[in-house]
């Protein structure tokens, strides 16, 4: 109950600003679309209707149709499911590995710590998209590759913050007291350290969602991420871009949807950070 009340308080703060409220509304819309995609969509996203290519927006097709006559609105709705799935799985993976490595770095010997930190440096020193290109060239494009690449790229991000947070907590008097009372190392980590650093890490996670959406859409745009016929936002932009001379509607609609989503999540993430802890550094 206390956690729920705290969450409600944070959300109230987020919605207190215009930017935060806008972001939160967009996030809610996209999550609802992603979860209820089969209900929200008006058509089967893969149903072809070649005679009806590049139809302009109408009552039957709210946002018009693409180069194969598929309903754009329904494809966008199903695209949100893919974007959310990729974002959530890769961020949960990165959050878990990053937190574990970060806590290990803070508790293990200096040598192990420097090995972990160098590992983080090496990963962050790779321009992540270029790393993705090299891996895709070997394994071929697929959604799971995208998830793994994004997870690896984001791990140092969480790991560094987790380590820094643990270092400031490690010698806190209340942990000293626990230790004197005979609490084991694992008990201290699970019961005391994790709950204390989770808030910051979750804010970071929310700020990473638009980054992941961008990477996934970018790779799919290049044809190196989610494979057709799955309707990823990136593939929708790519489809529209290829047929730009036939109709500009598909590419504009798909790009706007993508921009709308990343903007909404960014605004929400920043408002959440301001509400929880303005000192958390954004990713850049």
């Amino acid at each position: 109950m206390r956690a729920l009340a705290a969450l409600a308080g944070i959300l109230r703060k987020v919605c207190g600003t215009f930017i935060g409220a806008t972001g939160f509304a967009i996030v809610l819309i996209i999550i609802a679309m992603a979860v209820f995609a089969p209900i929200v969509a008006t058509h089967d996203p893969d149903q072809l209707d070649v005679l009806n290519r590049f139809a302009p927006p109408s009552a039957a097709h709210w946002l018009g149709t693409d180069h194969l006559g598929r309903d754009l609105y329904s494809r966008l709705v199903h695209g949100s499911t893919i974007a959310m799935f990729v974002a959530l799985t890769s961020i949960i993976l990165a959050l878990s590995f990053g937190t574990i490595l970060g806590i290990l770095a803070a508790f293990l010997s200096t040598r192990a710590e420097s090995v972990i930190l160098i590992l983080f440096d090496v990963i962050s020193s790779f321009p992540s998209l270029v790393l993705a290109l090299a891996i895709v060239s070997v394994f071929g494009p697929s959604m799971s590759i995208v998830i793994i690449i994004v997870a690896i790229t984001l791990t140092p991000h969480f790991g560094r913050v987790a380590r820094a947070q643990v270092l400031t907590l490690k010698n806190a008097p209340f942990l000293e007291a626990e230790r004197i009372l005979g609490a084991s190392g694992s008990r201290i980590i699970v019961m005391h350290i994790l709950p204390n650093i989770m808030g910051t890490l979750l804010v970071l996670a929310s700020m990473d969602i638009p980054v992941v959406i961008t990477i996934e859409a970018g790779l799919s745009f290049l044809g190196l991420g989610v494979r057709p016929p799955l309707a990823s936002w990136g593939t929708l932009v790519q489809d529209g871009y290829q047929f730009l001379t036939d109709s500009w509607i598909p590419v504009v609609v798909a790009s706007l949807a993508l921009a709308f989503a990343t903007l909404g999540f960014t605004l929400f993430g920043e408002a959440l950070r301001d509400a929880v802890d303005p000192r958390i550094r954004p990713r850049h």
Binding site: I19, P210, T214, A217, G218, F221, V237, S255, L258, A259, T262, L263, F265, T266, L267, E270, H284
Partner: peptide, 11 residues
Amino acid sequence: SVAFIAVPSFV
């Protein structure tokens, strides 16, 4: 500034 940071460069 937030808007442009958020939107992917290829868009």
